[in-house]
Amino acid sequence: MFKRTFSTLLIILLISNYNSIANNLYDKQDWREEEGIYTRIYDAKIKLISGEQTSIHQLAAKKPLIVALVFTRCAGVCNPLLLQLKENIQIILRKNQYKFSVLVLSFDPLDSLKDMQNLAYRFNLLNEPNWELAVVDSISSMTKSVNFFPVWDMRKKQYDHDALLVGVNTQGYITKKLIGLRSADEISLLISDINNVYRPSYRLPTPANMFTCFNYDPKTGKNTPGWGLAFIALPALLTVGILAFLRLRGKYHS
């Protein structure tokens, strides 16, 4: 009897696991943002464009960091990443009380401090108080510690890489990552996260669901109603409508 139960279970296990894995591939969930969370970023020595020598941990200790990884000859995602980040941060700064700085690091060994200065000039970041641009001495250890692996494309003579923002708290721990060009709301969420604001839960970047109940609003730390919530309120509203209709009909007939 036990054997039969066991073998049935084993078959169920195999079949259902096969199913779930097949489904997952179909779903194509992107969990790369989960990689390396709560590991420490490599404490690389960096040289800021002001000429100051420091390290990532030392800089983070002053204010939590959003680390953006770019290279100056980039003809791809770096420019929109920085432009959008700058724009979003201007929006956020009007409302957000949390402290942070943006650290733009070059991952290209060919980039000099001069190149980074030019970059700062081009994006008009020289006088921005929350922005630091720097070159780093041990690029591979640093990029490895944030699971960032740019690939050199021989044909384009360009690095093929993600638009990655890494949130680092004052102890040097990576608390959140964002991949891709993201909205001001999500950047703001990142900022509250590197300030160690605990939220018991968050959504995974899964394929967009049309009807979610809540969208997390990082500015206030509260959830704002999404379309899904309307579905929870709908039954009550419809009931009121039906009651009104029945009463009007009842009145008419009597």
Partner: peptide
């Protein structure tokens, strides 16, 4: 009546996913 309407909405959402062959995905929390 209210909870029966909730059931109707629930079933519509589930049928939408079932009969769309998975192109329409539901949100587990909702």
């Amino acid at each position: 009546l209210t909870c029966l309407i909730a059931a109707v909405i629930l079933l519509i959402l589930l049928f939408a996913e079932y009969y769309s062959g998975g192109t329409f995905k539901n949100d587990a929390l909702l």
